[in-house]
Design a protein around this nucleic acid. Structure first.
Length: 832
DNA sequence: GACCTGCTGCGGTTTG
């Protein structure tokens, strides 16, 4: 650095200090550290909790440059502002996963940016961004643009985008941990690779919460900078976890997930706080808790509100506003409030039911007392007894800083295909150059030439089986070798379907006069008849009529009705937490939760035995409804499901039989239709890691799983038509039909199609998580099998037994044998 | 002596 440059930098730092001082702020150490690295031309990852000054930390660098430029051009002592000229290209791009965060960031930056004579806008979907912002973003006449990964991808689909991005100095990726582990993150990786090519010198900073794999998070964001720094905010925010414990002698439910038995305690606690957030794990649970709290709340009826992902955005916005201005006392919410704008008024957070993961509990606790220096707080509300151990486990894991990792997906060729069409639309690409660029990302570093060619073939002609359909011939390779989109209709449709979030058609719920309430699943509303009551959006409603995917309703005068259920994610307990639960049960720590659990654990021990890291607890219980074999590997629900199917298949192979099975986060249960007594040797054999893949293939209906996965993959890759704006929403059944048809056609005529292969691969890796299953088997093999035959269901067994009542079965018995057995049973019962 | 879940996120103006 020359002396002049150093002087300019010093002056810029000084001006930034003044600028901060003018607002009554003092830059923190990590903020200054970040600015110095930025000025040295570095890229990196900033690891900090939300609300810790990260926005200004990340923005300070670009700000410094502007101030530096101003200082360089200004007369000594003057405060001349840089003037925007039409020729100046976009300098800073801020990417955030949430529209709400984008708007918030703009609010935070608008004043200082404006003061410097710079132009800032948020560029995104109509309705949120002003027409001016959209115009400026498209035209590239901005200094700073705040946007989402999808909108950014959209910008790349316009041919003039390259020019706008060529002068880019800095890209900030906010909440990178939220994108890292999913396909939105993959799309962003591809987009960033493109930006790096358009502006090779740009600096890239990611902002991330603490993760189990921060190094990997850095490598995925910055594959071109292997040793990029990770800057950590000096001090992590402290978090206090407390639990609403049962009274002495009070008995807790052994199973169940609603937790309404704790209502009175929660109401008392909410009354004692200024503003509370009550987090639940599911939307229907949020509806139920909102209803229950409102029914017994002694204050104003308007004090309590509801927030979840199926509510109309307007209702959600109103609730968020109430939280911001402190007019609400309590909001019942799902993960929809995990992220987003901060609410300093919230001083108490409740978590109803299982925390599911350490990161998740930490995130939720972080929503409370969001003021500098104050510790976050969360109060856990158990819905059944075993959850006490989960809270204890979460606290231990938290104290030891064991936060879950988020694994980045690789080789998601559906996203790649979408990105290629976007670029073909945005001025076109040459295959060799793009291949190099794409290989520069973490997600596609291992992309083979053949796979790349398959992606190109796919966007050019849809694949062998589809080449006769013009709709699938989206991209044309010109004589100059450049891949382009020529059809305007295809361009329009592609822009509509940019992004990786796929959601199935839902029925929107509206008042007759037009006010929207949100959406429910088709299956739920289909079960209702006009005049039926149901609970939704915190109200009791009457269905008036159902018309083209819209349910028209009016308010019910009284009465209650069913609460909708949504088919959502499965949310298994993280392995970190599951294994810590096992340790807690084996040797309870000296914490209140485990003390409260002591009687239950004594009962478990007396009836059977306690689990423990070195052993595999197995219980064989004979009851009137049959024999049940319970196994507790503590490997998380998903793994146990696969394991149960596997054991059922293998056991049935030895002795033809029919098995029911069920799984939860702690273990699994197998119920043979014909009594069979398990022994340790048999179990060893059933759990052999050998032949795992083949056996799973045989035991699960993989074709059906792949068919479902294919729908998602095909939508991202652009094989399924998007629902067009202004037209009636396609119903889920229609979409399923067209996806299913495609699936069949491809399977028959083009079984190697890249999307079929991807769908199958995703079933193995994400739905079955074959790797975790393999590890669980290996882990079980290392353990000593401890087989008990308790005379009744144990506390660990009971929830599984209850679960079993509603779960599937697998049979290796011939149909004839089953019919004969059923007949014999009838005979026995009714006398033959 | 008990009881039965399942999250979140985004995106637009062509042609018939």
């Amino acid at each position: 650095m020359t002396g002049g440059a150093r002087a300019r930098r010093r002056e810029a730092m000084q001006r930034l200090d003044e600028w901060f001082a003018g607002r009554g702020w003092r830059p923190l150490r990590f903020q200054k550290a970040l600015w110095r690295r930025y000025l040295a031309g570095e890229s990196g990852l900033l690891n900090t909790p939300t609300g810790s000054g990260k926005t200004l930390a990340a923005f300070g660098g670009p700000l410094l440059e502007v101030l530096g430029a101003a200082a360089a051009s200004a007369e000594p002592g003057s405060r001349a502002k840089p003037r925007r000229t039409p020729s100046r290209p976009l300098a800073v791009l801020w990417v955030t996963p949430l529209r709400a965060l984008a708007n918030d960031t703009v609010r935070a930056l608008r004043e200082p940016i404006g003061e410097l004579g710079l132009d800032l806008a948020v560029g995104m979907r109509t309705g949120d961004a002003s027409a001016r912002d959209r115009r400026l973003a498209r035209a590239g006449k901005l200094d700073v643009l705040v946007t989402t990964p999808e909108s950014l991808s959209l910008l790349l689909s316009y041919p003039d985008s390259a020019g706008h991005f060529s002068g880019l100095r800095c890209v900030v990726v906010d909440e990178w941990h939220e994108l890292l582990g999913n396909k939105r993150g993959v799309l962003l990786q591809l987009t960033l690779a493109r930006l790096r090519r358009l502006s090779p010198d740009l600096r890239l900073w990611g902002l991330s919460a603490t993760l189990g794999n921060l190094d990997e998070a850095r490598d995925v964001l910055l594959p071109h900078r292997p040793d990029a720094p990770i800057v950590t905010a000096a001090r992590a925010r402290r978090v206090t976890v407390t639990t609403l414990l049962p009274e002495e002698g009070e008995r807790f439910p052994w199973a169940g997930h609603l937790g309404l038995s704790q209502l009175a305690r929660v109401v008392a606690a909410v009354q004692g706080a200024r503003t509370s957030l009550v987090f639940t794990n599911t939307r229907s649970q949020a509806e139920l808790w909102h209803q229950a709290l409102s029914a017994v709340w002694p204050g104003r009826p308007g004090d309590i509100a509801l927030h979840h992902g199926s509510l109309d955005p307007k209702l959600r916005a109103a609730t968020e506003a109430g939280l911001r201005d402190g007019s609400l006392r309590c909001v019942v919410a799902t993960s929809s409030l995990d992220l987003g704008v901060d609410f300093p008024e919230v001083d108490r957070v409740f978590q109803v039911g299982s925390p599911k993961g350490v990161a998740r509990l930490l995130q939720r606790a972080g929503r409370s007392r969001h003021r500098p220096g104050e510790a976050g707080q969360v109060t856990c509300v158990p819905t059944h007894a075993l959850e006490l151990a989960e809270y204890a486990a979460a606290r231990v894991a938290l104290a030891e800083g064991r936060i879950e990792a988020r694994r980045p997906p690789v080789l998601s060729v559906d996203v790649l295909a979408q990105h290629c069409v976007t670029l073909a639309l945005g001025g076109g690409f040459d295959a060799a150059g793009l291949y190099r660029e794409v290989r520069g990302t973490h997600a596609f570093a291992a992309l083979e030439p053949a796979a790349w060619q398959a992606v190109l073939d796919f966007i050019v002609q849809g694949g062998r089986a589809l080449e006769n359909y013009p709709d699938y011939r989206r991209v044309v390779r010109g004589e100059d070798g450049i891949y382009k989109v020529e059809d305007r209709r295809i361009a329009f449709r592609h822009r509509l379907s940019i992004g990786t979030i796929t959601s199935d058609g839902a029925v929107s719920v509206k008042f007759l006069r037009g006010g929207g309430l949100g959406s429910v699943e088709e299956g739920f509303i289909a079960r209702l008849r006009p005049g039926d009551h149901f609970q939704f959006a915190g109200r009791t409603l009457v269905l008036v009529r159902l018309e083209s995917m819209t349910a028209y309703v009016r308010l019910a005068r009284n009465a209650s009705g069913q609460v909708p259920k949504w088919q959502g994610g499965r949310m298994p307990l993280s392995s970190e937490l599951a294994h810590e639960v096992e340790r807690q049960l084996a040797s309870p720590g000296d914490v209140p939760e485990m003390r409260a659990m002591a009687p239950l654990l004594r009962l478990q021990e007396r009836l059977s035995g306690l689990p423990g890291p070195g052993k595999l607890l197995v219980e064989s219980v004979k009851r009137r409804d049959g024999r049940h074999m319970f196994v507790y590997p503590f490997a998380g629900r998903q793994t146990h499901e696969g394991l149960a199917a596997l054991l059922a298949l293998r056991w049935g192979r030895r002795t033809p039989n029919t098995f029911r099975y069920a799984a939860n986060d702690y273990g699994l249960v197998l119920t043979p239709a014909q009594d069979l007594e398990p022994d340790a040797d048999l179990l060893r054999e059933l759990m052999s890691p050998e032949g795992l893949r083949q056996d799973l293939e045989e035991s699960l209906n993989l074709a059906e799983l792949a068919r479902r996965q294919f729908r998602e993959v095909a939508r991202i890759a652009g094989l399924l038509p998007p629902s067009l704006p202004g037209r009636a929403v396609r119903s889920m059944r229609q979409l399923q039909a067209s996806s299913s048809l495609l699936f069949d056609v491809l399977q028959r005529y083009d079984p190697d199609h890249l999307l079929l292969r991807l769908a199958t691969e995703e079933v193995w890796s994400t739905q079955l998580d074959v790797q975790r299953l393999q590890e669980a088997l290996a882990d079980c093999a290392r353990r000593r099998i401890e087989l008990h035959a308790p005379r009744s269901l144990t506390p660990l067994a009971f929830p599984l037994w209850a679960e079993n009542l509603r779960s599937g079965e697998l049979s290796t018995e011939s149909w004839k044998a089953r019919v004969q057995r059923a007949a014999a049973e009838l005979e026995r019962r009714h006398g033959g």
